[in-house]
């Protein structure tokens, strides 16, 4: 029983790593632009497909394929920001509707390029498992370990960027108060672009890293974006630390309920948990009052 609990903890940590990547990206975009990006799951899906093409079809090395996928999805992010979100500054609902349009377009474009058919199964780039903390029964497949390490590295880099660089400060200033930031000479257009690039790159990276582990289909984004919504609501929309902490809390909850009861119960309870948080503390566990 102890083994099972420990193993479930490890699985939860793994799940929280990519969930945090998604949630942090969404929060960054919401914080700076005030837009809820409904197409965020589709960015993850595109990231996974790029790995399918580069790695599984063209035979690139896996890390290079992941890098390629991050670049491509970040470019899609640039396009979305400039073409769709920029004209909608100050109109959050308009931005959301734009992202719904982008969601449809990305899904159809993927179906058109890659075909619908069966889910793409991508062979793992790294075989075998590692035993953690010297306990033989406590294992994590190497491929999943890569996801955890890469996601953690990405989050740490983002944290360093936001706290140590001038541009990072500008980004946080915009998230706190766009008008005051603009008065200080910070270009909102530029920070919005950077936020969108980082958000898209994180989503694309998550999709790329997960591609060999999960089933890759044009509609795979839905589940991830729902989870990310729950996480950012629980953590407080607009709070990056909240998003990371809520990712861990939520995935532990979800993984334990899935392991000990079943997956659909976990999904229903997760949504109810979010409704409860919305009712009890609408600004989320870490959100500030004025962001609501």
């Amino acid at each position: 029983m102890l083994d099972l609990i420990l193993q479930t903890c490890v699985n939860a940590l793994y799940a929280s790593s990519y969930t945090a990547l998604m949630a942090v990206g969404l929060v960054l975009i919401f914080g700076v632009m005030g837009i809820i990006n409904f197409a965020h799951g589709e960015l993850l899906m595109v990231g996974a497909y790029v790995v399918f093409f580069l790695y599984a079809t063209f035979g690139w090395p896996f890390p290079l394929a992941v890098a390629g996928s991050i670049v491509i999805v970040a470019l899609i992010g640039v396009l979305m920001e400039r073409a769709l979100f920029k004209p909608m500054r100050g109109n959050p609902l308009g931005g959301l509707i734009m992202s719904v349009g982008a969601l449809f377009i990305l899904q159809v474009a993927t179906v058109d390029i890659a075909g619908l058919g069966l889910a793409k199964n991508i062979p793992p780039a790294y075989d075998g498992s590692v035993a953690l903390f010297g306990i033989e029964t406590l294992t994590l497949p190497r491929q999943r370990l890569i996801v955890m390490v890469a996601a953690t590295a990405g989050l740490v880099l983002l944290w360093l960027f936001l706290t140590r660089t001038k541009l990072g400060w500008a980004l946080r200033a915009c998230a706190q108060d766009p008008e005051a930031a603009a008065l200080q000479g910070i270009s909102l257009d530029r920070t919005a672009l950077i936020a969108m690039v980082i958000g898209a790159a994180f989503a694309g990276g998550a999709g790329a890293l997960l591609a060999p582990i999960v089933q890759v289909t044009p509609y795979m984004g839905h589940a991830y974006v729902v989870t990310a919504f729950i996480v950012i609501i629980v953590g407080g929309v607009g709070s990056l630390e909240g998003a990371v902490v809520a990712s861990v809390i939520f995935t532990f909850f979800d993984t334990f309920v899935t392991t000990f009861i079943d997956g659909s119960t976990a999904a229903i309870l997760g949504l109810l948990l979010m409704l409860v948080v919305l009712v009890v503390k609408p600004t989320g566990l870490f959100g500030s009052a004025e962001k609501a």
């Binding site: 509707i97 734009m98 719904v100 349009g101 982008a102 969601l103 449809f104 377009i105 899904q107 159809v108 474009a109």
Partner: peptide
Amino acid sequence: PAIYGIIL
């Protein structure tokens, strides 16, 4: 869906 998206 894509045509809907573009119209939207």
